[in-house]
Design a protein around this nucleic acid. Structure first.
Length: 487
RNA sequence: GGCGCGUUGGUGAAGUGGUUCAACACACUGCCCUCUCAAGGCAGCAUUCACGGGUUCGAACCCCGUACGCGUCACCA
């Protein structure tokens, strides 16, 4: 049978990392089957919680990540409409709710909130845990229908058997069994005529031919109720794949509200969509082979539901950062250059070769946003305190540095070819001539032409980018400054 | 509180009865490489698998209990 999965977000805000991972897993489960179909369905049955533009963010994020759906509101499909509020307009849920009533899986309820609260207080006063006992269950269908026809407000509640147990097998958690007495008679159709998630989800999953339900484990304990609905309709129950949560720390789930990283936050911080996707795939799932870097296509190949874990996984930004760096470093240089060009341009206004700059940065940057700050010395050069020349490991001090610098100046003045090869050849003659170590001459040069303790790239690479004029200009300034300090 | 689920190092995790009973990766520490910083290479990092019992010749892996955590009990999804 062809696998069909769905990602069914509610447009109530931003795309959370946990949401995205659920979407990824649903996509992978579908695409594992060569004919598999991945569907996008918008669950907007709570009219009060809709957030403007939320749907667009979801679509953009999915597209950005390469998680293309085969059916959905924008691309259509045979099972539409794919937005639940449109399905409400078609009267679809009410129709099925009424069918369910006649199959004794649901009943009309006319109780108001006050009545429910009274019951709750009474039960709690007796020290019992609250469970609503709906008097409307005693009504005959005919009687109830008459009242609805007279315009009386009503909801439709699920009818739960008063005894027995309900079980199902989850692909991740195994067999789950609950007593029917612990299940509440939840509302299926609200008084505004909209279905609740609990109902719409079941109806749509069935009508859309969903074979594998992939969702967060917060639904684990209500799944038996959904199965009771499937059974009342005599429908096939789908395979369930409940995913453990993505945590912020040991106790809290990752959430946008706490300012935790959402997908767009991470992108804004300089992480690549591919790296983010790659990383979250690893949160709660582990590959069989000893490998961690995966493209989406490779994930499709490697993914296996059996390797989804059962406990919450803490989101570790350090590992994402490492992974992002790996993605960045593994890029072909031209692709890398065009990717980071805006970041170079924002930091370097001078007329330098951006491809060369991209090259020295590629092996060092783990995120895009750290690139501009690495490049500050190109446009801003200042002389600096002589103490910087003291470096134990390089065996340098201001005096030695001055000798190296003066010698370097002579060589660099004569040289016209400032390619790395040429620079390398000429400059490396110096240590031999001066009877010094490489570091004793190259380290001071790098300092002298950048003014920075740490720089991406060494003296040769940077001199090559700076070019003859600017290199000599900086070198002279530094020599002059150093002489003054030593005097 | 009832019910459900979970618990391997700082983190992600492999491992489901005995040939390495703790792989691999991030982080961390040290060393090497080296013109700085990175990158790269090498090494170290859980005498122990929440705790307590039990089953077994033998358990991280099976059973029971305890603790802790998470989820759920909405006209939210």
């Amino acid at each position: 049978m062809t696998i069909r999965t769905r990602f069914a977000p509610s447009p109530t805000g931003y795309m959370h990392i946990g949401n995205l991972r659920t979407a990824l897993y649903a996509y992978l489960v579908a695409k594992k089957d060569p004919n598999g179909v991945f569907i996008m369905r918008i669950e907007d049955t709570d009219q009060g919680r809709l957030v403007e533009g939320a749907t667009d963010i979801i679509f953009d994020t999915m597209k950005d990540c390469g998680l293309q759906h085969d059916e959905g509101p924008d691309v259509g499909g045979e099972y539409g409409p794919y937005v639940q509020s449109d399905r409400v307009k078609d009267g679809l849920y009410m129709e099925y709710a009424k069918k369910l009533i006649h199959r004794h899986g649901a009943h009309y309820c006319f109780c108001d909130q006050e009545m429910i609260d009274t019951q709750r207080e009474l039960q709690e006063a007796r020290g019992e845990s609250f469970k609503f006992d709906d008097p409307c269950k005693a009504l005959s269908i005919e009687e109830a229908e008459k009242r609805t026809e007279n315009g009386e407000a009503f909801v439709i509640r699920q009818t739960i058997p008063t005894e027995g147990t309900t079980s199902f097998d989850d692909e991740v958690f195994g067999r789950i069994t609950v007593d029917n007495t612990t299940l509440d008679e939840q509302i299926l159709m609200k008084s505004d005529g909209f279905p609740t998630y609990n109902f719409a989800n079941v109806i749509d999953d069935h009508l859309m031919g969903i074979t594998d339900v992939v969702r967060g484990m917060e639904y684990l304990s209500s799944t038996p109720k959904y199965n009771l609905i499937y059974e009342a309709f005599d429908w096939d129950i789908p395979r369930y794949i409940h995913c453990p949560p993505v945590m912020k720390n040991e106790h809290e789930k990752l959430s946008k509200r706490n300012g935790d990283a959402s997908y767009q936050d991470l992108v804004a911080k300089g992480y690549l969509p591919q790296a983010i996707l790659n990383y979250i795939a690893l949160l709660g799932w582990s590959p069989e082979e000893d490998k961690e870097i995966f493209t989406l296509d490779e994930l499709v190949q490697a993914f296996n539901v059996k390797h989804i874990g059962t406990s919450g996984a803490i989101f570790d930004i350090d590992k994402l950062t490492w992974l992002n760096g790996m993605w960045l470093r593994n890029m072909p240089i031209d692709e890398y250059h065009s990717l980071i060009e805006p970041y170079i341009a924002s930091a370097v206004k001078g007329n330098y070769d951006h491809v060369k700059i991209a090259k020295i940065v590629q092996q060092r940057a783990n995120t895009l946003v750290e690139i501009p700050e690495m490049l500050g010395f190109f446009d801003h050069f200042e002389t600096f305190d002589k103490d910087l020349y003291n470096n134990k490991k390089m065996k340098t001090n201001p005096e030695i540095s001055l000798i190296s610098l003066k010698a370097a100046k002579e060589v660099l003045e004569q040289l016209n070819d400032y390619s790395e090869e040429s620079l390398h050849e000429e400059l490396l003659k110096l240590p031999e001539k001066l009877e010094m170590k490489n570091g004793q001459v190259l380290f001071p040069i790098r300092l002298a032409i950048t003014g920075q303790q740490f720089t991406p790239g060494g003296a040769i690479e940077i001199a090559s980018i700076l070019g003859k004029e600017e290199t000599l200009n900086r070198l002279e300034q530094s020599i002059e400054h150093l002489e003054k300090e030593l005097a």
